[in-house]
């Protein structure tokens, strides 16, 4: 029996915008086990962003329970939730959200600054390891503006790994990237998943969703459909078939 990382029962989320009440989520039940690789899909307004905010403990449900790694989120106050995010979650964003004029290494170190138990030596060591895990050990001292989009997203993934979280949450991680780089990022995610990481990501591209083991499709604030991906794509295999862009051609 595998650990259950996420268990959600009868989850509702209402927003009050003036007089109007918007029902963003209308009763969601979801269970994600350790080692799963889940893609959340849906058109805009389907509630998938709200779902991700709640999964990331950035927002609280109006009704229903959310257990993250056996902790009931509803019982925690603001500071405890922040601490929980620091310990159990890793975030990857569409726009990378790296600190400008800050080296890759320092960006990756950032979450550990908020963990007072980690000393400066351990912090650096873990950041270096995380960068090695995403294949950017040689770009450690580069600033974000000296890195390509794909490399920046890798730094962001390293940052999400550095605190050894139980769950990595990615919000449209390939949204700002070209096809090839998108596949490279998915390759990295598949690698990490094979090593046991639980990953949940939001996407609206159905071909990107096919790299996951399971798809959850949202519609009108409810889960419309859940299915195990039957013809799962392997990013490494696809990358081999893609023509390698020869940069030297441009110089000629």
């Amino acid at each position: 029996m595998k650990n259950i990382i996420i268990e959600i029962n009868g989850l509702r989320k209402d927003y009050h915008i003036g007089e109007v009440t918007v029902h963003a989520l209308r009763g969601v039940d979801l269970k994600i086990e350790e080692g799963e690789f889940v893609a959340i899909m849906g058109v805009s307004g389907s509630g998938k962003s709200t779902m991700l905010n709640i999964l990331g403990c950035l927002d609280k449900p109006t009704h229903g329970n959310y257990m993250l790694d056996s902790v009931n989120i509803n019982t925690l106050d603001k500071d405890a939730t922040a601490k929980l995010r620091n310990k159990k979650l890793g975030f990857v964003f569409q726009a990378y959200n790296l600190l400008p004029r800050t080296t890759a290494l320092e960006n990756v170190e950032l979450p550990l600054f908020y963990n007072s138990k980690v000393g400066s030596r351990e912090r650096k060591e873990r950041a270096v390891n995380a960068l090695e895990a995403v294949g950017l050990a040689d770009r450690m001292h580069h600033m974000p503006n000296q890195l390509s989009g794909g490399q920046q997203q890798r730094v962001a993934i390293a940052r999400s790994l550095v605190n050894d979280p139980v769950l990595i949450l990615a919000d449209e991680p390939t949204g700002n990237l070209d096809t090839r780089t998108s596949f490279e990022i998915m390759e990295l995610f598949q690698d990490l998943n094979e090593k046991g990481r639980t990953i949940v990501y939001v996407t609206h591209e159905s071909d990107i969703a096919k790299f996951a083991t399971r798809n959850v499709i949202f519609r009108d604030g409810k889960i419309q459909r859940e299915n195990v991906v039957s013809e799962r794509l392997n990013a490494r295999e696809i990358l081999k078939t893609l023509p390698v862009e020869n940069i030297e051609e441009f110089d000629a």
Partner: peptide, 16 residues
């Protein structure tokens, strides 16, 4: 603002 949002999402508390 985005940096603040990021810091909060990776575990920074309001008082931090």
């Amino acid at each position: 603002t985005r940096e603040i949002g990021l810091r909060m999402s990776i575990g920074g508390r309001g008082k931090d």
